[in-house]
Write a protein that binds this DNA or RNA. Structure first.
Length: 425
RNA sequence: GGAGAGGUGGCCGAGUGGCUUAAGGCGGCGGUUUGCUAAACCGUUGUACGGUCAAAAGCUGUACCCAGGGUUCGAAUCCCUGCCUCUCCGCCA
């Protein structure tokens, strides 16, 4: 959410930003709503000031035993008028805030302007895609053949877009999560959080998933509970409505969670394999930063996520998302894309974003410089470090051998009791 | 699931309809005193949204005592609903 007063004073800048993002203008009503709302508030507050004053007079008269019925009669009417104006103001405020909440974040000046993913800018590449002397298979062929991945039974017990991992498949997933958590907590200075996987709607509003993206979420019946689509939601909301000390910043957390996405509207996309699932696991990195250092923090957070791919020796590239591809709440996003030999393309495995104060404003995340300083909104950042399921499939595909077995990356072997190759049983 | 007790500023804590403009304390900030420190004393103290102003500062108004409704000329205070916390009982990994 942007600041109301900022929007009022920068309407043209915001219109340009919306055009760059390729969005239609939701600001048409904004000016009129804003003006009318302020008019009604001014009127109501003048009447309230009068009521407060007269109420004191009534108290004085009554204390002296004098008649106050004329004033009381007048205030009855004033109160009725105030009630009417308050309702009008509330109605206008609701509309104005609804309009405000639908305005996405303003992209950072370094974000490339463009319409879609083709316009994203490649920043760097790491590693060489391996040359195969046989035709590399996709993970949805390799996994079931190795007996570590089962889509048929997943469809039976749950439905489409679910998978059952078994044996070394399940252990590989667990090893990856542990490997990532150890790396970030021991070497990158993140402190580990294990949050609830179910949150209330206030949390989802805070990070920007609600109200606009409810269709992508799973909601529990007869409650205000939702399954988290990412650990970003519970972890970013940890300090909601709190004031942190500037000296504490940056606060760096990592969290392993399951993630649940209904993926409504993505039918037909990534239908094969485990690339797009209703449930997957992710290790998330979250930072709470001073405003003036948040872009340095974005660079280091991205490097922290990249380290996972480097240790696993998986080739990848980093792209800067263009204005048309940028998420609603983000001011700047780097996607990490891992090389998938079966489709011969780079596929998103992490998304590292600086939200500046956009989420902080929604979630009321503040900090204070020094003891007597004013509270300011801090900046929030997050990135996958990494999506565990997609790392799993990247390993299966990149480390496959001609006989269908999969070599275990050296960095993971300690987490699999020294296992070197995953073979058919 | 049952019974009970609670939710007041950064923190503790008083407050059963109008001298409350939320007492008092702690903490913070500024100052006085002091060779230095401590102590003492004095002053000060939050957020949001309006108005005024070219803008800022300042001045000024309104709202905010968990949230949302209601009663009343007037609500932290009375009524209703919800959320959360704590205690005890039951059930449970």
């Amino acid at each position: 959410m942007l600041d109301l007063i900022f929007v009022r004073e920068n309407l043209e800048k915001i219109r340009q930003m919306l055009r760059n993002r390729g969005l239609s203008d939701p600001l048409t009503d904004f000016e009129a709503l804003d003006r009318e709302r302020r008019r009604v508030i001014t009127e109501a507050e003048a009447l309230k000031a009068r009521r407060n004053k007269v109420s004191d007079e009534i108290a004085v008269l009554k204390k002296r035993g004098q008649d106050a019925s004329a004033l009381i009669q007048e205030m009855k009417q004033t109160s009725a008028e105030i009630k009417r104006l308050d309702e009008e103001a509330k109605n206008l405020d609701t509309q104005l805030r609804a309009a405000l909440r639908l305005i996405p974040n303003i992209p950072h000046p370094t974000v490339p302007i463009g319409r879609a993913s083709e316009d994203n800018k490649e920043i760097r590449r790491w590693g060489e895609p391996r040359q195969f002397d046989f035709e590399p298979k996709a993970h949805w062929d390799l996994g079931p053949a190795l007996g570590i991945l089962d889509f048929d039974r997943a469809a039976k017990i749950s439905g489409a877009r679910f998978a059952v991992y078994s044996g070394f498949g399940a252990q590989l997933e667990r090893a990856l999560a542990n490997f990532m958590l150890d790396l970030h907590t021991r070497e990158h200075g993140y402190s580990e959080i294990l949050p609830p996987f179910i949150v209330n709607s206030a949390s989802l509003f805070g990070t920007g998933q609600l109200p606009k993206f409810a269709q992508d979420l799973f909601k529990l019946e007869n409650s205000d509970y939702w399954l988290i689509p990412t650990a970003e939601v519970p972890v970013t909301n940890l300090y909601r409505d709190e004031v942190l000390d500037a000296e504490q910043l940056p606060v760096k957390h990592c969290a392993w969670t399951a993630c649940f996405r209904s993926e409504a509207g993505s039918y037909g996309k990534d239908t094969r394999g485990i690339i797009r699932q209703h449930q997957f696991q992710k290790v998330e990195l979250v930072k709470f930063s001073l405003p003036e250092t948040s872009y340095d923090e974005l660079e280091s957070l991205t490097r922290d996520a990249e380290t996972v791919l480097q240790r696993l020796n998986l080739p990848y590239r980093v792209v800067s998302l263009c204005t048309g591809d940028l998420g609603f709440s983000s001011a700047k996003t780097y996607d990490l894309e891992v090389w998938l030999p079966s489709s011969r393309e780079y596929k998103e495995i992490s998304s590292c974003s600086n939200f500046e104060a956009f989420q902080a404003r929604r979630a009321n995340l503040r900090f204070r410089r020094g003891k007597g300083g004013k509270t300011e909104f801090l900046h929030t950042l997050n990135g996958s470090g990494l999506a565990v399921g997609r790392t799993w499939l990247a390993i299966i595909e990149n480390y496959q051998q001609a006989d269908g077995s999969v070599v275990v990356p050296e960095a993971l072997r300690p987490y699999l009791h020294g296992l070197e190759v995953i073979c058919r049983p």
